[in-house]
Each structure stands twice: as C-alpha cells, then as structure tokens.
C-alpha cells in the first residue's frame, strides 16, 4: 500500500483546531488538577488521622478506576442527580479530578522528602502548621516535585484523547471526523499521532528548561 497524505491536507486546519482544544483542555486540567492535587497531597500529611485516611481513600479510588469511567460518571451519571454539565466542562472536571489523584501522591512524596529539621526549625521559630506548610515546606516540596508534575502534564495531554468519547471536538475526535470523510485512516491517525508527539515534546522540553533554570537560581 502507499500512503497518500494529500487527501487530508484540506482538513489540516481542522486537526489544528482540534489540537488547540486538546491544549486548552490539558492546560485547564493540569492547572485545576495540580491545585486539587496539592490540597489532597497536603491532607495526606496532616497530623489528623481521619483526614489523612479520607485523602488516602480519595487517591485510592481515583487511581484505581479508569479515567473513562470517571468521565462517564460525571457526564452521563450526574444528570440523573439533576446536574447537567456541558461536555467540555464535564471533561475538564473529570480530567482534573483524575489528575489530582496522581498529583496528590506526587505532592505527598515531595512533602515527605523535605527534611524533618525544616519542620523543627519552623516550630521553634513560632510558625504554625499551616504557615510552616505555606512558607517552608511546600516551596521546597514543589521544587522536588517539578519533574514528576511535568510527567503528569504529558500524561494528561495524551489522556485528554478520551474526551472524544464525550463528543468534545479535541484532536482525536477531529481525527475520527477527518477519517470518516477522507477514508484515509492510516494517514489521518499518523498525522494525529505526530501532532500529539509535538505537543508532548514541546511540553517536556520546556519543563526541562524550567527545571534547569530553577536549579541554577
């Protein structure tokens, strides 16, 4: 067989528009996922056993169930409780919650990697638990966590392809549309794959750059 990419050239702008939605969805999800994840991760180390257990259970459930099922629960399940969310919103919520489970574990690891002496010095300087967390522990923990958070971002870009099942016109969804018009399945998904690869490469290279900068300063 021969590959003929010319058939999909007229539809490239559609693919790029889809890529834009993918980027938007990933950026929003990584942002909210990280916020929620830092919160959940911080709860994992709070000196209150019931709170720690609740956070652990949350992480356990999120990481132990498929993202696709979580998306379905939010988009198809919540309406039965009277909560109808637009597909894009539901998708962002689902991805963010899913990501928060993983970020939560990263944050817990990052916090626990900060030496105990930092807690002790903060305590004898009069800092409360929350102030110690905010001014001393988290700034150091986030630095430790940056590489893992970067990986999580890359993962999110790829997993956002599942949003196509909610009929969100992100890259994978658009790819399916282009394929159904052109019948050039192989070519279409090769191009879609390349676009994903470009997105993940740009992301990881920029993160490596940021990490280097941070290490120097």
């Amino acid at each position: 067989m021969t590959l003929d990419f010319s058939a999909i050239v007229p539809y490239l702008h559609m693919l790029f528009a889809g890529a834009k939605v993918t980027i938007q969805a990933s950026l929003l999800s990584v942002f909210f996922g990280a916020l929620l994840g830092i919160f959940v991760g911080a709860l994992r180390v709070v000196p209150l056993a019931p709170v720690r257990a609740a956070a652990a259970a949350y992480i356990y459930i999120i990481r132990g169930t498929p993202l696709l099922i979580q998306l379905f629960l939010i988009y198809f399940g919540l309406p039965s409780l009277g909560l109808n969310l637009p597909a894009f919103t539901a998708g962002i919520i689902g991805l963010s919650i899913n990501s928060s489970g993983y970020v939560g574990e990263i944050v817990r690891g990052g916090i626990e990697a900060v030496p105990k002496g930092q807690w002790e010095a903060s305590k004898v300087l009069g800092l409360s638990y929350l102030k110690t967390m905010r001014f001393i522990i988290l700034p150091q923990a986030i630095r430790n966590m940056l590489p893992a958070i970067g990986n999580e971002f890359v993962t999110l870009i790829k997993e956002s392809s599942l949003l196509s099942t909610l009929a969100i016109t992100e890259l994978t969804m658009v790819g399916q549309q282009v394929r159904s018009v052109t019948y050039a399945s192989f070519e279409t998904f090769i191009v879609v794959g390349i676009i994903y690869l470009v997105l993940t490469s740009v992301t990881s290279f920029s993160l490596q750059y940021v990490e280097k900068k941070w290490k120097v300063s």
Partner: peptide, 11 residues
C-alpha cells in the same frame, strides 16, 4: 533553639 544541623531554610 540552635540545632546541630543548622536547619536553615534552603529556598
């Protein structure tokens, strides 16, 4: 309190 390991805030 002064510690053996200083415990300065590195960041």
């Amino acid at each position: 309190m002064i510690f053996q390991q200083f415990n300065l805030f590195p960041h």
